[in-house]
Design a protein around this nucleic acid. Structure first.
Lengths: 338, 338
DNA sequence: ACACGCATTGTCGACGTTGTCATAGAAATA
DNA sequence: TATTTCTATGACAACGTCGACAATGCGTGT
């Protein structure tokens, strides 16, 4: 493989001068610079990152540890945000996912260390608390979509589930809905409680009584092996004699079953029932007809901002400990005014 | 950072002996080995991959180049397969996606080279032909879910769309369906043509006339900006006086709209229409009620086998040029016998 | 006693790069 | 003119690891 030395020979300069050209350092004549650059092109020289790292102990590499995020359809935009940032800032990304195994997670931390990674982005598929298996490692770390279980002060970036659910609830209330159903997400997810709280609080603040709300559990159990009550619960909810005029569901995916339940009962959407989701999981929200009004989780921004934050932590600027990004309401056609 | 030398000092041996212990080489007394291992534990020593690479010019790293796969919900299992293989075989994965930009792709190849990657897995979201921007690079490469546009002989691994569609068609025919609708995938996808061909051929071989088949285009246009006719086309198809008893659709995602179209017309699934999909995109196939009978794309295996194949190419075993993995029919409850 | 083989350990240099310091000539200043 | 300050370049060591080879010591067969 062609090294800096062959380039130096070809250009008739010392290897240090080549190094200067590569790194854009000053004190190189224009003429020398051009000669070196030509040699680089001619020989197809590409710098060896490993050698650079060994000398300067800066890998310019961030690691991403995920639970499942890179291998499941959800929250995949977080990774896109990180990669875009990395791409724009000349960083390399090393990615690994634990598949939920903590032994594997420990191995990943080791692997990251052996690559002398500058920092770690710890990303989860669903918003939840986590307990990183970092051991006694002290690599700068930023949590995305999750927060440490212990009271360690790792900086984190999370979506504002509360505000998103609040906006959706207000949206329904503003359009005249006074009986509203809510199908709850799996309660082990951090977002589930926040969304439900926001729904309850917003409805109560507006003056609705607890009896105006039908709240049902849609799913429960460990991630990956949940019990699913959505279809049954939606059907039951819509068969009530005083049925809700609108249903809000824990996320978009659940909404598929709500649509089907409604249609199986001969109800039209949105004429007979309005429906809103949460997440803006577009595979679903755009495929449903009518298209789904929902609150978009700011996944892409989570990734982008997370990478940016990690960068500043690595650079030594002590970071604001925690941060929350807003969810944006996406209005489509699944809600009507009553 | 603690290096092999500090370990050597702590254990009272030479650095070479430490190296031998780390790499499990012979000719080390049990007693010495233990002393070294203790020193490693005590100091928390972790080998420096960069130094190792620079010395032995083997990075033990594979690169994944994707178009969008790591950042969209589809075919994400390919990555899971690759990562599982890498994990089981002590390889590191460097992942980058082009987002469709060929400039970015060229940069990625350069970046991979600068990390002295052992091989590249070139992965696409949808099965299609591609034209890698590798420049004059000669890194061993395996294509997954795609094949080179030029007649370069890069080994590739693809799903058997033809066989999958054949199995689904036979499944419907075996259950007595004699009028079958087909909603076509975007024709720019390689799989689209194969699936359609298999459908046509299998139906014809069975003795159905072209008039027994309703074939409609479901979507067209560039990936990411398709025009979508699915709902309209499904509705039209089901309003025919002599409507099909079964509809097969290009993929599972399209099936959401077919379900909704059917239900909006008051048709029950599967009593009035049977429906099958393709892909086993489980977010959809399991969320639909009744759950969807479909053909599972072997994404996970594509990734696993692709990594395995790349490994053997890197090792110098010249590889079988191309390979196809079968799709498995997943029987659920969206089809009835007539 | 001697040579021989083998297990065990160590010395040293090389990988590709960059940091430190030295050098040489040119330009600026005294 | 002598001295200082720049600019442009090079020589060399060092980063952490491993490969090639050398050295040591111990048992075995003669």
């Amino acid at each position: 493989m062609v090294s800096i030395i062959s380039v130096a020979k070809a250009a008739g300069v010392s290897n240090k001068t080549v190094s200067r050209v590569i790194n854009g350092e000053p004190y190189v004549t224009e003429e020398t610079r051009e000669r070196v650059e030509k040699a680089i092109r001619d020989l197809g020289y590409i710098p060896n990152m490993a050698a650079r790292l060994i000398r300067s102990s800066r890998s310019n590499t961030f690691g991403i540890i995920t639970d499942y995020v890179s291998t499941t359809p959800y929250s995949v935009d977080i990774v896109r945000g990180i990669q875009d940032w990395a791409n724009a800032n000349g960083k390399t990304i090393l990615m690994a996912n634990t598949g939920g195994s903590s032994k594997r997670e420990a191995d990943i931390w080791k692997m990251f260390q052996s690559h002398r990674i500058d920092g770690v982005l710890y990303v989860t598929m669903y918003r939840r608390t986590v307990d990183p298996e970092a051991g006694d490692v002290r690599i700068p770390t930023v949590m995305i979509n999750c927060r440490p279980q212990t009271d360690e002060l790792l900086p984190s970036i999370e979506p504002d589930d509360y505000q998103g659910a609040q906006d959706l609830t207000r949206y329904l209330l503003d359009r005249g809905h006074r009986k509203i159903g809510y199908i709850r997400l799996n309660p082990i997810l951090l977002g589930a409680q926040l969304r439900l709280d926001a729904f309850r609080k917003t409805a109560a603040d507006f003056g609705l009584a607890e009896g105006d709300l039908s709240i049902r559990l849609g799913m429960e159990g460990p991630v990956g092996a949940e019990k699913n009550y959505i279809f049954a619960v939606a059907t039951e909810m819509l068969q009530q004699k005083d049925r809700p005029t609108a249903i809000m569901s824990g996320n978009d995916e659940m909404t598929i079953q709500v649509y089907i339940a409604a249609m199986a009962l001969g109800l039209r959407i949105p004429e007979d029932v309005s429906i809103v989701g949460f997440d803006d999981f577009r595979t679903v929200s755009l495929a449903l007809k009518p298209e789904l009004t929902t609150a978009a989780l700011p996944y892409y921004d989570l990734g982008l901002e997370g990478a940016e934050l990690l960068n500043s932590v690595v650079a030594g600027n002590k970071a604001p400990s925690s941060r929350v990004m807003p969810c944006k309401l996406v209005e489509r056609t699944s809600v009507r005014s009553v």
